[in-house]
Design a protein around this nucleic acid. Structure first.
Lengths: 352, 352
DNA sequence: GAGAGGTTCTGTATCGTTCTACTAGAACGT
DNA sequence: ACGTTCTAGTAGAACGATACAGAACCTCTC
């Protein structure tokens, strides 16, 4: 004897399969007493309700949306910024009674072809009605698979493709506001610490090629900063790998050791900036006086550390991504969110 | 014309459906050249690979495990403790190339019957091979549904049910170690701040009944503390709602205003303790000298705040939960993890 | 009392796979 | 030449539900 199915319940209750199905899905279509009897026999047989896989197949709905991350999944939970987005997204999913399927990608990016093929496979496996691609490159194979499957997609990068919708932060405006702030404070020699795709390691100066290969947002932020600081400013871009405090510390030490020490260090994320603050203090320098330090994202820890940063409506970003997939009323293809420069004591006038 | 399926690819390539299926799933079963041709026609037709819903139905595997949270899903991302568990769990899921489906529960606990029914429904919907029930009460309806569906389950609470496996932290031992620490420091009047199921609000003294109704871990921690502090100590248990800094602040103000102010305030979580620290400092009192404060969990922020806490191998907890569902080699039904008391400057000798 | 309209319930095709059993033919050993 | 084994591929029955069309029956209406 196999497991309990609609059919066995129908037989036991003396009704047709359709009726049992309706008892679960369309209570209005049958009399209260029959429904009652059906549900009772179901319970007595230990039937746990219609099998979701079968239902998915037949009704062509999955009842879940997928979340695609470029970074390893575990990273998603350790970065406060992603966590904020997840909170917003899950809020919407919750409201629509829709599951959220985290789709693990093996390959960060430039991995072996096998890894890439595995990623594509993983995306093929996912039982979802739509996909949020969070910081996933435009040409990532998993993204292509999702599109081939005809899944609606909402991303965080600008794309010239009618099938894809996206939510952006005004990275450029944010970076420029921060750049202007630093310029007005008199900083003409600015170090910029970015997070790169490399795992971790020694701090390195970024070549023009390296800059091209940065993450979408890091690239925009660096560019905006450059523009706002103006051609007469000296900008030194440095990376020490992934987004982490450790990378920030390493990069900061590198910058502080240079013969012409920058008077300000701008970071493309708060996590990096917290590391920079560490290193600055370890040298006995006062942030905001001897060296100005700024971050990006305004995560909770930034406020605690009195770090100048750029606040982004990150939870709102998650909510909008969710609505793009779940709320039929919501039809905008592109949304750009405003940011706000939050000046705290970690930035101050450039010392002479 | 409908969408592209195995069948249409088979027709176009002039082979049988089984062969196309094999081309994707069992490369060894057919000649390289036929496989090549099949995959090419598939690509040219825009076929994105076997439909996962159909595959799930037929093969009775979902390729994903579910995560059941009692708290609202968005809470999961704002609590550093859950985040740590998620990181561990997702690490294992990733390694097994398995998705992680977050299952949103509408009702925290004692909600309307409709809500409860909705929760059960949500659990019925989930296409998963197993379920991690994280801090979900033993009698929660969603848990029952999962069991009825015959899904393997791994929880964080002790259960007397052969079908369920669990990972525990030695809450009792941890609480006792902390209690001993406080007693040795001379504290005889201790306030305990717990997180309750109530949303938020004013601080209230806990009745014996209230204590029974606390979350599993809060209950154990409170009990262990009481035991270790001994019968001669006065223990005042207070709650101000959910696990949040705000609740900690509220509860602390309440305790500090009492005629016989406690010399130590122990909290059942670090998040609460951070709020307590805030309130203590706001009163101009020095933590560790005027009032000792301790937390639980040892989240990263606890170290930064120099808070005495109990370290729990939280990521390991997540990993074990994952392995219980995914790793066939792993057969233990019950695992109890050790903890470590981390003494920092927020606790000190009781003032006379 | 015939037709219209509304409930309530039924029968069956269908969703897109994978699985099991089978076959035709090649290869092999004796 | 004969039986056996192996390879590459096929046919058709599941998997467990939902959608859709229609049947049976009851209630009005004129």
């Amino acid at each position: 004897m196999g497991r309990v199915t609609l059919k066995s319940v129908a037989e036991a209750a003396g009704v047709s399969v359709s009726t049992v199905s309706n008892a679960y899905n369309r209570p209005g279509q049958l009399s209260a007493e029959v429904r009652q009897r059906v549900l009772e026999t179901a319970r007595s047989l230990g039937y746990a309700g219609p099998d979701p896989a079968a239902r998915s197949l037949r009704s062509q709905r999955a009842g879940a949306i997928g979340l695609l991350f470029t970074e390893r999944l575990s990273y998603a939970f350790s970065d406060p910024y992603s966590v904020g987005m997840l909170a917003g997204l899950s809020e919407v999913a919750e409201a629509h009674r829709t599951g959220l399927l985290l789709i693990p990608l093996a390959s960060p990016d430039s991995s072996t072809p096998q890894d890439v093929e595995l990623d594509a496979d993983t995306m093929r496996q996912a039982v979802v009605d739509g996909v949020v691609a969070y910081c996933v490159d435009a040409d990532h194979p998993a993204r292509q698979v999702a599109l081939d499957r005809g899944l609606p997609m909402a991303s965080t990068i600008e794309l010239d493709d009618d099938r894809q919708r996206y939510v952006l932060i005004d990275e450029d405006g944010a970076a420029k506001a921060l750049g202007r702030h630093l310029r007005e404070l008199g900083h003409r020699n600015v170090g910029v610490v970015v997070n790169s795709r490399e795992p971790a390691g020694a701090a390195t100066l970024l070549s023009a090629d390296d800059e091209e290969d940065l993450y979408y947002d890091s690239r925009l932020r660096l560019r905006g900063l450059r523009q706002a600081l103006g051609p007469q400013a000296q900008v030194t871009a440095v990376s020490a790998g992934h987004n982490s405090q450790e990378a920030g510390r390493t990069a900061a030490r590198f910058l502080l050791d240079r013969p012409d020490r920058p008077t300000a260090i701008a970071c493309t994320s708060d996590v990096l900036a917290l590391g920079v603050l560490d290193a600055v203090k370890a040298r006995g320098l006062a942030p905001g006086r001897d060296v100005s330090v700024s971050g990006f994202d305004d995560i909770p820890a930034a406020r605690a550390a009195d770090l100048t940063s750029v606040r982004q409506p990150i939870a709102e970003k998650g909510r909008l991504l969710g609505r793009m997939l779940l709320d039929p009323q919501f039809t905008q293809r592109k949304v750009v969110l405003d940011t706000e420069l939050v000046v705290r004591s970690s930035t101050g006038p450039a010392p002479h």
